[in-house]
Write a protein that binds this DNA or RNA. Structure first.
Lengths: 342, 342
DNA sequence: AGCACGAATGAAACCGTTTTAATTCCAGGT
DNA sequence: ACCTGGAATTAAAACGGTTTCATTCGTGCT
């Protein structure tokens, strides 16, 4: 079944392709009678212009690439949804590229997206979020960004000057810490992620800073390193409970970890928040689905997405736009935390 | 910054574009010396062939469209992940199209995907899952499927002969019902979704059938209709608890509803599963994240995805493939259910 | 009748590849 | 020295649109 082309329409209407193109994009006046004749044929043959041919010539595809480490992690669909919502009506379509955080895949997708002539790229997570990033990726991304508008979400590539939008995670962690202290907590543990990720490092730094500002010490054994998963949360909470002295509050690097922590705490017979306050980070949907609902620091993921798209769109339109957009975190107090009454 | 084309490479190497094309795709022998000369120039200029031009000619894009109602619903990322995993290495890229289940958006995306000449389409959820689907959509999808390989996931369009892969939801509901009965439950409530969706209708039918087969009655007030959300689960459980007699078990149309139900049950002072058994459907990640962990009927979402891609791929390759692929559900017994001891 | 002018249309170039058919090159056989 | 045949290469067409520039058409004015 051969595709119907603009030539078929033109010849059947007894006009030139230029005229058909004109009624298609109404880019120039066409006599009413010929216009309607052409329109009728278009309907009749269900003619659809071939976007490849158009894009080849116009040098724009109306397509943008979104690179995520793991679409299965609820964080990313939320951001994607923000992007989508913002882009709606502007006529863009999205390539979703799932990298599993592997350098090879990230690099490969960058390559593919360039070949497919996307108008822009939104790059999140994965390698972009390491304190020490592989120089190959840095170069690869920088090179891509030199050719195609590109924005980084919640990440950074040291040594480059890329556009990015990010939550102020340090501030979020500071807010949470401050909140815990105001609630009377003095002995607070922090369940971190891999120390090689900026996310985790930033938050830890902020946590320690606020503690120190309040003349509170952070002994080594009060910082535990996991890998952002629920299992890590379970395991590390187990470790915390095994220690001779139990902290009154635990701050977690993300919600998954916090949920894991709550699970083992409850299994160990504790009542949350009565026996222990647990605070997460991100506010993924899960946070408000569990019982007790999680007190957490909300990253406005939809904002992250919509801002990222806005920045990208300006880049595409060659408008001026600032390099860094920061999204403010918000403390969301729910049921997993309470004031410490001695 | 103009794009480097195959012409630039060719002229600089002093050969014709055909030769460059040949080393690119090694589609014909090229003398070693010229090959290496060309390769060097390609590296040097970082030349990347323009996929649009290639696709225009070859009539294949290596791109497939995935249409989902809501990427924020964890069900769909899981399926997507299955698709992605299966497709990995086969060199496909995916357009992710988020429709919010609106007919207009679905139709629009179908249009766009055709224009962009995708090699195939995987269509899930939304309107496809209604017992009475709008005839416009039916026609639109059928027409698209006539031109482009297309597979439906967990849905159907009555009156059409489309390829589809789906979980046997009726069987799943039957399994769950049977399990509850075997555990000694006699008074079982069912929290449904909108009665207009096939998902909900199928399950309800199976539930009633199995109950009847066991000589159990399903009074009208034991079937409550919601809209698949957690809030619906909360509200309907509230209604259940307000009734004079309380069922010993509640079967829910999906996990969200079940989690909502558990939440209000716990808030009302019940202990789950001691005071009431609650069973979900789907086994989204949330199901094993909450406390108590949810007993549920697992839809193998990764299977759904990978099978859908396999079918699609065969369609694209013009291989023969059967119209319907069914994925078996599995009962996953966790903590929210227990045997009824009188 | 002749002219000017804007509106409508057409011819052809162009976008960046792949591929077919034709051509050149070159070594080996006579 | 000439022919042959396969290997390497090229020229040009094709893919399906958009756009520039030129041309035709029709109308109102002198």
């Amino acid at each position: 079944m051969k595709q119907v082309t603009i030539y078929d329409i033109a010849s059947e209407a007894g006009v030139s392709v230029a005229t058909v193109s004109r009624v298609l994009n109404n880019t120039a006046p066409v006599k009413a009678s010929t216009r309607s004749k052409i329109m009728k044929l278009i309907k009749q043959h269900q003619f659809q212009p071939n976007a490849l041919a158009r894009s080849l010539l116009k040098k724009e595809t109306g397509t943008i690439g979104v690179i995520v480490p793991d679409i299965t992690n609820p964080f990313f669909p939320e951001v994607f949804s923000g992007i989508d919502h913002e882009a709606r009506g502007k006529g863009f379509t999205f390539f979703l590229c799932n990298t599993h955080g592997e350098y090879e895949r990230e690099s490969q997708y960058l390559h593919i997206l360039r070949e497919k002539q996307v108008d822009g790229i939104i790059f999140m997570g994965g390698r972009i979020n390491l304190t020490k990033c592989t120089p190959e990726l840095v170069e690869e991304v920088a090179e891509t960004a030199a050719r195609i508008p590109l924005v980084l979400v919640n990440g950074n590539l040291p040594g480059t000057e890329l556009h990015r939008v990010a939550t102020d995670e340090g501030k979020g962690a500071a807010m949470a810490t401050q909140y815990l202290i105001e609630q009377g907590h003095r002995d607070i543990a922090y369940i971190a992620g891999m120390s090689t990720t900026t996310t985790s490092a930033q938050k830890l730094r902020a946590f320690k800073r606020v503690m120190n500002q309040n003349n509170l010490d952070v002994p080594k054994e009060r910082v535990l390193y996991g890998d952002f998963t629920m299992e890590a949360g379970e395991r590390l909470m187990d470790e915390i409970l095994r220690a001779p002295e139990r902290p009154t509050a635990v701050l977690c690097v993300n919600d998954f970890t916090a949920v894991g922590a709550i699970k083992t705490a409850i299994k160990a017979g504790l009542s949350i928040p009565n026996d222990m306050t647990i605070v997460g980070f991100d506010d993924i949907p899960l946070a408000s689905s569990i019982f007790p609902e999680l007190t957490t620091v909300k990253q406005q993921m939809d904002q992250l997405g919509s801002q990222a798209f806005q920045v990208l769109h300006k880049l595409i339109m060659k408008e001026k736009v600032k390099r860094l957009t920061v999204i403010e975190p918000e403390l969301v107090v729910r049921e997993s935390s309470r004031e410490l009454t001695p």
